[in-house]
Amino acid sequence: MSDYKFKRVLLKLSGEALMGSKEFGIDPDVPQKIAEELKPAYDAGMQIAVVVGGGNIFRGLSGAAAGMDRAQGDNMGMLATVINSLALQDTFERNGMICRVMSAIEMHQVSETYIRRRAIRHLEKGRITIFAAGTGNPYFTTDTAAALRACEIGAEILMKATKVDGIYDSDPMKNPDAKKFDTITYMDVLNRDLHVMDATATALCHDNHMPIMVFNLDEDGIFDRALRGEHVGTIVVDE
């Protein structure tokens, strides 16, 4: 544990990341790779919380754009995150990591109901704790849920795994001259409209001095390196 810079972290995963090479749903190889990335830190006694999106199954905004009621679409999206959370739990446990799923929407047959003090106790006992169903409210993204839960459990950093290796001043997939930031402030993220996380999530982290680390989880060993304090990706901090 002494080799790690952080003791308690929250990892935010996108639902799309779970698709892997598929066009929909979950590629079993992806949760397995995530489990392998987290295992060394778990074995060392790190306290790890996870929030995963549901975009690989359903996205409320897409439903709203197609004419669906936004609140109804978001409720469906929150249920999609529960499916992803259960898939991650199954994979983590098959890799020897004790795991609990806590849902913001009550569904006692498949998960525990989110209670802040109980969540912290799970972490203290060394259980990976996955927070499902977003905040339990429509109109809030899983980015905002991740920021909220990170603040509630007293995480030392919010780590967001993306498809790119950090934050750029423009889309590196479209602009080969895009400039990567090693560090950037919350206000710069908001003012530049960089879409690291949605504005509500970024503002919540800013107000509560919650640093955000953005990195590409596809790089082997990057989660462990980040926890050891190596500079990977981009870090969002105060002024």
Rank of each mutant, 00 (worst) to 15 (best):
G166H: 06
I167Y: 02
Y168L: 10
Y168V: 12
Y168G: 11
Y168S: 09
Y168T: 11
D169F: 07
D171W: 08
D171V: 10
D171I: 08
D171A: 04
D171C: 01
M173H: 10
M173I: 08
M173W: 00
K174C: 04
K174Y: 02
N175E: 10
N175H: 15
N175P: 09
N175K: 07
P176N: 05
P176F: 06
D177L: 11
D177E: 15
A178V: 03
K179E: 13
F181L: 08
D182H: 11
D182W: 02
D182Q: 13
T183Q: 14
I184W: 07
I184Q: 08
T185D: 06
T185E: 03
Y186G: 12
Y186A: 11
Y186K: 12
Y186T: 12
Y186D: 09
M187D: 15
M187E: 14
D188C: 01
D188E: 15
D188F: 01
V189R: 11
L190F: 02
L190G: 13
N191M: 06
N191R: 15
N191Q: 14
R192V: 00
D193F: 00
D193I: 00
D193V: 06
L194A: 03
V196L: 03
V196D: 01
V196G: 04
V196W: 00
M197F: 00
A199E: 13
A199S: 15
T200I: 13
A201D: 06
A201T: 07
A201I: 06
T202H: 00
T202K: 01
A203G: 07
A203E: 12
A203V: 13
L204Y: 09
L204Q: 08
N208K: 12
N208E: 09
H209K: 15
H209Q: 14
H209M: 05
M210Y: 04
M210E: 01
M210W: 03
M210L: 14
M210V: 07
I212F: 05
I212M: 07
M213D: 00
M213F: 03
M213A: 15
V214D: 03
V214H: 01
V214Q: 02
F215P: 04
F215K: 01
F215D: 04
N216R: 07
N216F: 03
L217S: 03
E219H: 14
D220N: 13
D220H: 13
D220Q: 14
G221C: 09
I222T: 14
F223W: 05
F223V: 15
F223N: 01
D224Q: 12
D224F: 09
D224C: 09
R225L: 12
R225M: 11
R225S: 14
